[in-house]
Computed example of a mutant assay.
Amino acid sequence: MSVPAGYASLTADVGALGYRFGAGSDFDSVISSGFPGEGYQRTDMDGFTHFFCTGNAEDAFNWNPLDDRGKIDGDMGQGASRGPIFTTRGQIISANSHYESEDDARENDDLFGSEHGDEAVAVIDEINA
C-alpha cells in the first residue's frame, strides 16, 4: 500500500518494529516492554516509567495444543499490557497480556502473551493484499 500524495509515512518518519508471526513461541533473548504501574515484588513501578524485561520466551503450556500462550520471566504487572514482546532483531512476536494470580495476589514472575500464529499471519496478509 502506498502513502497518498500529501501524506507522510509514519514508519518512514519515526520508525517501527517489524513482526515475526507464525514462528512458534520459543525464542532466545527476547525483550518485553511496558509502562507498569505495579510489579512482582517491586515497588518502583509507577505507570509512567518505561521498563523492560529480558530473557527467553517459551511455550507456556506445551502439553496443551489448544493453549497458544507463550511466557517469559518478567516482573512487570498492570500497565504493561499490550506492550510488545520482541526479538533482539526488533521483530514483534507477541504482546504482554497477563500474569497468574490467585485471590488478587501474583503467584510468580511469569508474564504471558499469545503466540501470533497462522491467524495473525492471515490478518497481516489480508491487510497487505
Rank of each mutant, 00 (worst) to 15 (best):
residue 1 M to S: 14
residue 2 S to F: 08
residue 3 V to L: 01
residue 5 A to L: 08
residue 5 A to G: 04
residue 7 Y to H: 10
residue 8 A to V: 12
residue 9 S to W: 00
residue 10 L to Y: 08
residue 11 T to N: 11
residue 13 D to L: 13
residue 13 D to Y: 07
residue 15 G to L: 09
residue 16 A to D: 10
residue 17 L to C: 10
residue 17 L to M: 11
residue 18 G to P: 06
residue 18 G to K: 10
residue 22 G to K: 09
residue 24 G to N: 09
residue 25 S to V: 13
residue 26 D to M: 05
residue 26 D to A: 14
residue 28 D to F: 01
residue 29 S to E: 13
residue 29 S to P: 04
residue 30 V to Y: 05
residue 31 I to A: 02
residue 31 I to L: 09
residue 32 S to Y: 00
residue 33 S to A: 10
residue 33 S to D: 03
residue 34 G to A: 03
residue 34 G to E: 03
residue 36 P to N: 04
residue 37 G to C: 01
residue 39 G to A: 02
residue 39 G to M: 00
residue 40 Y to T: 03
residue 41 Q to P: 01
residue 41 Q to S: 10
residue 42 R to L: 00
residue 45 M to G: 01
residue 45 M to R: 01
residue 45 M to W: 00
residue 46 D to K: 03
residue 48 F to D: 14
residue 48 F to K: 14
residue 49 T to A: 06
residue 49 T to H: 06
residue 50 H to A: 07
residue 50 H to C: 01
residue 51 F to D: 02
residue 52 F to T: 13
residue 52 F to Q: 12
residue 52 F to V: 11
residue 53 C to Y: 00
residue 56 N to P: 05
residue 57 A to F: 07
residue 57 A to R: 04
residue 57 A to Y: 05
residue 58 E to M: 10
residue 60 A to D: 08
residue 60 A to E: 05
residue 61 F to Q: 09
residue 61 F to T: 12
residue 61 F to K: 07
residue 62 N to M: 07
residue 62 N to S: 15
residue 63 W to D: 14
residue 64 N to E: 13
residue 64 N to K: 10
residue 65 P to G: 05
residue 66 L to D: 14
residue 67 D to T: 10
residue 68 D to F: 13
residue 69 R to M: 10
residue 70 G to P: 03
residue 70 G to Y: 00
residue 71 K to N: 11
residue 71 K to C: 07
residue 72 I to K: 02
residue 72 I to Q: 02
residue 73 D to S: 11
residue 73 D to F: 01
residue 74 G to T: 04
residue 74 G to N: 02
residue 74 G to Q: 01
residue 75 D to Q: 03
residue 75 D to I: 01
residue 76 M to R: 02
residue 77 G to H: 01
residue 77 G to R: 01
residue 77 G to W: 00
residue 77 G to M: 01
residue 80 A to R: 00
residue 81 S to F: 01
residue 82 R to S: 15
residue 83 G to R: 02
residue 83 G to I: 03
residue 83 G to N: 06
residue 85 I to Y: 03
residue 85 I to M: 14
residue 86 F to I: 03
residue 86 F to Y: 14
residue 87 T to Q: 09
residue 88 T to A: 07
residue 89 R to N: 15
residue 90 G to L: 02
residue 90 G to M: 04
residue 91 Q to Y: 08
residue 92 I to P: 08
residue 95 A to L: 12
residue 95 A to Q: 08
residue 96 N to H: 10
residue 99 Y to M: 08
residue 101 S to N: 13
residue 102 E to L: 12
residue 102 E to T: 14
residue 103 D to I: 06
residue 104 D to K: 14
residue 104 D to L: 12
residue 104 D to S: 15
residue 105 A to C: 06
residue 105 A to Q: 15
residue 107 E to W: 04
residue 107 E to R: 15
residue 107 E to L: 15
residue 108 N to Y: 04
residue 110 D to W: 12
residue 110 D to Q: 12
residue 111 L to K: 00
residue 112 F to W: 03
residue 113 G to K: 00
residue 113 G to Q: 05
residue 115 E to I: 14
residue 117 G to E: 07
residue 117 G to C: 08
residue 118 D to M: 09
residue 119 E to Q: 12
residue 120 A to Y: 12
residue 121 V to A: 03
residue 123 V to A: 08
residue 124 I to A: 11
residue 126 E to L: 11
residue 126 E to Y: 11
residue 127 I to A: 13
residue 127 I to E: 08
residue 129 A to F: 06
residue 129 A to Y: 03
